[in-house]
Nucleic acid binder design. Structure first.
Lengths: 202, 202, 202, 202
DNA sequence: CATGAATGAGCTTTCATTCAT
DNA sequence: GATGAATGAAAGCTCATTCAT
């Protein structure tokens, strides 16, 4: 749904060429990687989830790692789409609180599988082959955007606050996931929103 | 360092009976799992790291999962040892700050491989076979101990504070790891210690 | 010989598509299981006998047990083919005597490896996993067909006679095999044929 | 129970030296081989069943095959004991009918695991290493004894009748086992006893 | 472009057998 | 003699990747 808006824009046919198999594969990869982890996921799993014949996968992705890379890129795109939408809000504090609200909304999924991107990054960080850097890029993009909001709020310690917020989210995702308790994420989400309020109107 | 003290105590030979192969295997498993992740690690990797012939591993652990379980138990033991040592400090606030100091000390390792237990838990959480529950038990043990410290500090919201602290640690571990930046953990560690101070002497 | 007739019919290419590897594997499995027993037979043995790369076996059969099942099914098919051919004979007594003649013909093989199906069933019967039931199905199919012949001969005790005949065959197969004496099967075959004659024209 | 009588005889201590571990192992082997088959049975299985430490097995049996041989010998001893007891009966026909009665008595076991010796022989017959010959020896001993009874009954075709009887038993064991139907063995047992009667008093 | 089939390297696991004490 | 531990060869199975059509 998030990506369906692009249907109106020019260039969409380039993205959907070949029946959108590539897109289906990437979407499938993102989801299956989230649910099973990269290592436990076979290309056959992804092919099945994307309803693409196994042999055909290699037409779009030369290796499994290329699919992983594409999944990371997809997370990057999702983030870009999300922040673009948040940027339409006039108040930086509102943007941040809406960001948090989105996290809380997905607490059930987080309780079962963790943060879609955080767990992927954690898995890729064991590596040393460039895929870890790709993950870093996305994480930095998120930090940068959050930092910008704090800057707009007039905070000189914007970067530190950004780190604090994103770390809090990643951390509560880990706890929510490990304890299988979505309520934990709701509680911490509320706390973070109050914290934003406190920072915005001192 | 942690284990080397036992060399002076009697009873160490019980731990090292028959060359302590079991212990060596568990230690090796903990380390290699941390560095490579569970899925990417082969039993041959662990056997090599523990200097035990591959075929012999199965004398001690019937399956790979049993080794994973043993690794989780080892994390549990480490935690118990750590909190026992911290409990010798008179002031709960000092205990918590020393706990944080320990985390910060390991920031180089965290930058490269993440939190030894957090990344393991994150990987096991993709499962649904009991190993995820074992991880939860350890995480809860940490939360319980931290909660107790806040309770001793007279905080009625001790549980929420415990969750906040542990989540902050897990989150900053993820960021430190993904960004490969140990400084991040040092900064956040200082922040958390000040935060403890603020809570202890209001 | 049995299958070579299909060469003349259309539709044979469906059976032999892609070199008929699956068929070759099943045939190989039936034979090697007969000669070595299921447990002593490795998948590599079957792959070699069927001239199929070991790794490729798993494209056709997910586990060794699936191959065993396919072998049992093949025995079922063989039985169906055999009885269909016998059914073209007008006299039930002739059908039974021809059946027996077929057994006697294979006495050399029986002396070396026992009854191809009986020894398989005996091995599977140690199990409790459904493969034993598959064997029972085939045995019952044979009993049913024999019973039908006795019924056509007007015998009210057709089932008991069927059991007697099939048991006699299985038993003489065991003795022939254990004593490595094909003559034993020839003698008992003659006896059974006379016995049929005595039942048919009293 | 069958073997316990030997306790009164001299020479029993030779048999029970070393705490009877050897005997326990052989007994265990006979039973476990019967229930699981030779190939599926590990030495650890037998050691456990005989309550003997695994490492100790090799003091009594140099290889697994030696244990198999001992199991075959045990079957031979059982047969000798059994026929000796039957020989105390005055009438050869009674001896044979009592033999059959014994088979029928064990029909529940036969339904689950087949004839204890027949299934063992069938498995060993796939081999070509001397163990198959050992099995043949036992089978021949049974045939010889049965033949002697028919000879005593004045039958000139005693050998053929012996083969017929033993084959009938082996065959009905296979069917009883495969169909998991003990009733089948009871029925066929009755038939054989009537058959004996018919042969004895013509 | 598409795809079922093929391939081989590598992994987990089992087990008969041996060894040190 | 007795025994827990050790060992290595081999088995079953998985899967990323390639190929022929």
């Amino acid at each position: 749904m998030t990506d369906s808006e692009s249907g109106a824009k020019p260039g969409a046919d380039a993205r959907s060429r070949r029946g959108g198999k590539r897109e289906r594969l990437v979407e499938a990869a993102v989801q299956v990687f989230h649910e099973q982890g990269v290592e436990k996921t076979t290309l056959a799993d992804i092919a099945r989830a994307g309803d693409v014949p196994l042999g055909n996968v290699y037409y779009y992705f030369k290796t499994k790692d290329h699919l992983v890379e594409a999944a990371v890129d997809a997370h990057c795109d999702r983030l870009t789409t999300l922040t673009a939408r948040l940027d339409t809000l006039p108040d930086p504090a509102d943007r941040l609180k809406t960001l948090i609200a989105g996290w809380v909304e997905q607490r059930e999924t987080a309780a079962r599988f963790g943060c879609p991107f955080g767990t992927l990054a954690t898995e890729l960080d064991k590596r040393d082959d460039g895929l870890d850097l790709a993950a870093a890029k996305v994480m930095r993009a998120l930090l940068d955007w959050v930092e910008r909001q704090f800057t707009e709020l007039g905070r000189p310690d914007a970067r530190a606050l950004a780190v604090e917020l994103v770390a809090a989210y990643q951390g509560m995702s880990v706890l929510t996931n490990t304890l299988r308790d979505p309520g934990l994420m709701a509680d911490q989400g509320s706390r973070l929103q109050s914290w934003i309020d406190g920072l915005a109107r001192p």
